[in-house]
Design a protein around this nucleic acid. Structure first.
Length: 313
DNA sequence: TGCCAGGCGGGGT
DNA sequence: ACCCCGCATGGC
């Protein structure tokens, strides 16, 4: 569907703000082109796409849509601001990053990066389900397949690129058989459970969905709500955290939670995602080798949270 | 081939 | 409270 330009707005982000880092953070191929961010938005009956470009110390938000309804325009601007975190003040978080072996560079070389959020909890849960029991690369491949096969294709004038929305819960239910082609394995049933849950209620208690536990629910709340007070504990963190901060072997989920709450307080969830970004989300064995040698590689020559946008598949 | 990879629930003890 | 297993799929 070809959208038309309906609105433009200049936005001043809270400083310090790095547009390029934020726009590329967990962006897939059509969401960032090295200069501009493209944000697909789904409103069930309507769709919108916001192109965001850096302008001096401001950002130009250009709204494209299939309607010129002011409700949709207002929602698009609000959601795009939220997704790029332009109004988020990380001053207190940076205080906690000082002298941290993993997060220290966030207050230096990577200062101003926000995590790139998604439109809502539903899109967050889609991401976290794809991350269950799979590597970073495999999880994001699943999500790419889901958007290409079930989402709505969008285009804007003078740009050949086709960009796909996240499918809505309704689209997932209607096109459930297409999930078989997305290589999501047994996760297809969890995705269906989640779609039904979101059609029926507005609850944030995602753990009620069969197939969603603490890790997936917390990650979804971080990405979909920018709610940072819970640390999502998976096998990766339950080995990485004790290794880096105590030189010990694997901790229980409970112990990692307690450590994270004490160390990062209300910012624990943000710390978790930022750790995956600056480590390049490598598999545990590779990452522990790198850390042993005292090096981190947030920008490797392979798919990682900050480089994913360079890869089409 | 076999076994892991940012989970989870169901079953056992 | 724990431990263990199966569950799809892809990569090594």
């Amino acid at each position: 569907m070809l959208l038309r330009h309906v609105y433009s707005l200049n936005v001043k982000p809270v400083k310090p703000y790095s547009f390029d880092l934020t726009a590329s953070c967990y962006a897939i191929s059509w969401e960032y082109d090295g200069h501009n961010a493209y944000i697909t938005l789904d409103y069930d009956k309507h769709v919108s796409l916001v192109k965001v470009s850096p302008r001096e110390d401001e950002l130009l938000f250009e709204v494209y849509a299939d309607t010129s309804s002011s409700d949709i325009i207002d929602s698009a601007i609000r959601d795009a601001r939220f997704i790029l975190g332009v109004d988020e003040d990380l001053t207190n978080f940076y205080g906690l990053c000082k002298n941290d072996p993993l997060l220290g560079i966030l207050a230096e070389r990577f200062i101003g990066m926000r995590i790139r959020a998604v439109q809502n909890l539903w899109q967050g849960i889609l991401i976290s389900i794809c991350q269950q029991n799979a590597s970073f690369k495999q999880g994001w491949k699943m999500l790419l397949n889901i958007r290409r096969k079930l989402g709505k294709p969008l285009q804007i004038p003078n740009n050949p690129r086709i960009m796909f929305t996240y499918p809505s819960p309704r689209q997932v239910i209607e096109k459930f058989d297409l999930l078989k082609d997305c290589r999501v394995g047994y996760r297809d049933k969890v995705i269906l459970n989640a779609a039904r849950f979101f059609l029926e209620n507005e609850s944030e208690e995602l753990e009620k969905i069969k197939g969603i536990g603490q890790y997936s629910a917390r990650l979804a709340r971080i990405l979909g709500l920018r709610k940072y007070d819970e640390f999502p504990v998976d096998r990766w963190f339950s080995v990485l955290i004790p290794k880096v901060y105590a030189n010990e072997d694997k901790w229980t989920i409970r112990r990692v939670e307690e450590f994270a709450a004490k160390k990062w307080d209300k910012w624990a969830g943000l710390a978790a995602v930022m750790i995956t970004v600056i480590t390049g989300a490598k598999t545990l064995t590779k990452l522990l080798e790198d850390i042993q040698q005292g090096k981190l590689s947030p920008l490797p020559d392979e798919p990682a949270p900050l480089t994913l946008w360079r890869y089409e598949t």
